[in-house]
Design a binder for these strands. Structure first.
Length: 551
RNA sequence: GCGCCCGUAGCUCAAUUGGAUAGAGCGUUGGCCUCCGGAGCCAAAGGUUGUGGGUUCAAAUCCCGCCGGGCGUACCA
């Protein structure tokens, strides 16, 4: 429906552009911010005026004159401000939005999946398996998963993937750390390696290893065992957090297939590898992308982290995805340039793979910063966070909503003292409350009167109060919001939108009664409520948050 | 030093990706329940968008310079 409206305007803009020799893609079509500006707006006149050497307002007036408004969709078109063209929808088209929200099987704003739809690979969290999931992982998990859900709503495929670094030096180092703790548990003298892992979870692992009767003679196999434990725990926590991956990709599967070495040979054949001081370097500076060349094989003959990572991304490409997004923590920005350079060497198009950095979460405790370091062991985990919030479904709702409210590109302060308070005052409840309140009203409707709650054209004029129109205007925006989330690769637009939708509904509720009204008016308002309920439930679902019928 | 990110109300953050009067929550102040759920609504106070320039019809948003904060700058992962 909204797309029909936009299309009606788009056609006119295109026709005018053709006539004037202007660029139609410059002109944006938007839902107006305020009702007084009409329903849809375009900046066509302002963006075209300069090239045509005309005054924007005069041009806008000329454009409107050729657009044959009013017609069956728009009731009026006016020029406002510096040259905006604002269009108002006819009341029947406007109120009819409810009809289209309720009658379609596919949720409003969703698109059907087609055979040759876009296939996305979203990699997120991929935390180092030598430590528990921290609070940045919590942020990344919420964002990656919600984005995947939104992409799926747009008729596309989103494949969630978690990369496990279960190979390399750290396995043995991790094993040695566990072994040292095992010995200490038995009262033997043992030192944790200098670069080892000192978190209390290592002690827990040691206890478990002893309980299972594992031998402490082989750090490597203890390391592998410990990593499996950590991955299983991460998986458990993430499931509780409503994040499910299609694929847990182990680095060792690449290593077993020697993928890092075949990738190295491919790069060498293309002339991008050279030897210096006994190490193998990749010429990542070739296109000026990186500021220095990177070691891919050490002088000891071991691949660095970078080499299997290149192989991994090549594997992503070869699996036939159209687009790959990798959400990384803020400390990884150094790896962007080198990966881009490497993928280009492998003839992978630049726009295939994109790294998005999720900015840090500054953990505070009563206004004081808390350091987060896996190696130091002082950290707050996702588990801790959920526990702090009550360790139930509501805790997940609150935590996810909190992270999804903020755009991921900005650093975020998270005060633990505020966490519990947040759980009572969190905007998540504001949105859920609107949903529960609607459900409560619907429960009180007379049974057996379903026939009253189907769309009738005579309802159109009953849906014209300011507060009612505000709700419908907000509903109209939903498809645009979903689209914007995909464009920005960030679900935070949807979170804000749901808060606004709940807001206009709460306002409507306080101004107009539903129950006990004259039959047609009540029916019209029930349809409004059903529409809001549908969008709230759908939007919350896309964020991975429950839409409770009672609270 | 060099590179990247960030600076918006007292606090935590938004701002339709360059749009019209910069908005929410928390906190502060004052109202609203014999009436569909007060986890709500209404109102008030709170801003030179760090700062100085530039770009244009239009800048919190883009460009340059400063100031402040964070991260990175491994033959670690």
């Amino acid at each position: 429906m909204i797309n029909d409206f936009r299309e009606a305007l788009r056609i006119r803009i295109a026709a005018s552009a053709a006539q004037l020799g202007s660029d139609p893609t410059q002109a944006a079509i938007e839902v107006t911010r305020e009702e007084k500006f009409g329903d849809l707006t375009t900046n066509a006149a302002m963006v075209w005026a300069k090239a045509l050497k005309k005054n924007p307002r005069e041009l806008a007036t000329e454009l409107i004159a050729t657009w044959n408004i009013p017609d069956e969709i728009f009731s009026e078109a006016t020029v406002a401000g510096p040259g905006f063209i604002n269009l108002r929808l006819r009341q029947d088209a406007f109120a009819g939005i409810l009809h289209s929200i309720l009658e379609h099987e596919l949720p409003f704003g969703h698109l059907p999946q087609t055979e040759n739809c876009k296939r996305w690979l979203l990699e997120f969290v991929s935390a180092n398996p030598t430590g528990p999931l921290n609070i940045v992982s919590a942020r990344a998990a919420a964002i990656g998963d919600a984005l995947a859900r939104i992409i799926e709503s747009q008729g596309q495929v989103a494949h969630r993937e978690y990369y496990i670094n279960d190979a390399g030096n750290q396995v043995r180092l991790f094993g040695e750390s566990v072994v040292a703790r095992m010995k200490q548990e038995r009262g033997e003298a043992a030192e944790i390696p200098e670069e080892g892992y000192r978190g209390s979870y290592v002690v827990d692992l040691a206890k478990k290893a002893i309980a299972e009767g594992l031998s402490d003679t082989d750090p490597e196999s203890i390391g592998n065992w410990a990593i499996d434990q950590m991955v299983a725990a991460a998986r458990n926590t993430l499931e509780k957090y409503r994040v499910n991956y299609q694929h847990w990709f182990k680095e060792t599967t690449l290593r077993k297939a020697k993928a890092e070495w075949t990738t190295l040979e491919t790069l060498r054949t293309k002339g991008y590898v050279y030897e210096q001081d006994g190490a193998q370097f990749l010429r990542t500076t070739a296109d000026g992308l990186d500021d220095k060349d990177r070691v891919v094989v050490t002088s000891q003959g071991r691949p660095t982290y970078f080499l299997p990572d290149i192989a991994y991304h090549l594997d992503k490409y070869n699996r036939g995805f159209n687009r790959s997004i990798n959400f990384l923590g803020p400390d990884h920005h150094g790896s962007i340039a080198r990966m881009k350079a490497a993928l280009r060497m492998l003839d992978i198009p630049d726009d295939f793979h994109e790294i998005r950095l999720i900015q840090q979460v500054n953990l505070m405790r009563g206004g004081e910063a808390v350091k987060m370091s896996k190696r130091a062991g002082e950290l707050v985990t996702l588990e801790d966070l959920l526990e702090e919030l009550g360790d139930n479904a509501t805790a997940v709702d609150v935590a996810r909503y909190f992270f999804l409210q903020r755009k991921f590109s900005t650093p975020l302060d998270f005060d633990q003292e505020l966490a519990k308070q947040q759980s009572e005052e969190n905007p998540a409840f504001y949105v859920q409350y609107a949903h529960a309140r609607i459900c409560s009203i619907l429960r009180q409707l007379q049974a057996g009167s379903e026939a009253d709650y189907v769309w009738q054209d005579r309802f159109i004029e009953l849906l014209s109060e300011d507060e009612t129109r505000a709700v419908i205007r907000k509903l109209m925006e939903y498809p645009i919001v979903l689209d914007r989330c995909v464009q920005a690769l960030d679900p935070n637009n949807l979170t804000g939108y749901l808060t606004e939708l709940a807001g206009v509904f709460h306002k409507f509720y306080h101004h107009h009664r539903v129950l006990g009204q004259e039959r047609d008016l009540m029916s019209a308002r029930v349809l409004l409520l059903l529409s809001v309920k549908k969008i709230l439930a759908d939007g919350l679902d896309l964020l991975g948050i429950n839409a409770p019928e009672q609270m």
